[in-house]
């Protein structure tokens, strides 16, 4: 179970900079293995800053360290990378583009 939310993924500066260090580097892992959430949603779910949250979509699930971000309620953000890929499905609706943004997701403390 868990709270129904909407996932968006995207690029960040840190993820890009981490990429140059190598995708096996700690910088890259740190930059991509995290989730940003609305602070009220975190409080509602009982998740602390830096706490581990379990995200689950139709495609898969992953546990990530949570941080409060400037997001409206109901929205969670995961940087592009290995963690986001576990949550994004392969349906492209005839375009070639998977749903990297706007994915139904549930969140709960891990």
């Amino acid at each position: 179970m868990g709270e129904p939310l909407t996932l968006i993924t995207g690029r960040t500066r840190e993820q890009a900079i981490g990429m140059h260090k190598g995708k096996t580097s700690p910088e890259y892992r740190q930059a991509t293995a995290r989730v940003e959430m609305n602070a009220d949603d975190m409080a509602h779910l009982g998740i602390q800053e830096g706490g581990i949250v379990r995200l689950r979509t139709a495609a898969g699930e992953v546990d990530l360290s949570a941080q409060a971000g400037t997001l409206p309620r109901g929205l969670v953000f995961v940087p592009l990378g290995a963690s986001a890929n576990l949550l994004v499905g392969t349906e492209t609706q005839g375009t070639g583009m998977p749903s990297f943004k706007g994915v139904p997701v549930t969140a709960e403390p891990a």
């Binding site: 995708k23 495609a59 898969g60 592009l80 990378g81 890929n85 576990l86 499905g89 392969t90």
Partner: peptide, 12 residues
């Protein structure tokens, strides 16, 4: 390019 890093897991 690096599809293993950027594609949905099930495609990669």
């Amino acid at each position: 390019s690096d599809p293993a890093a950027h594609f949905p897991r099930r495609a990669a």
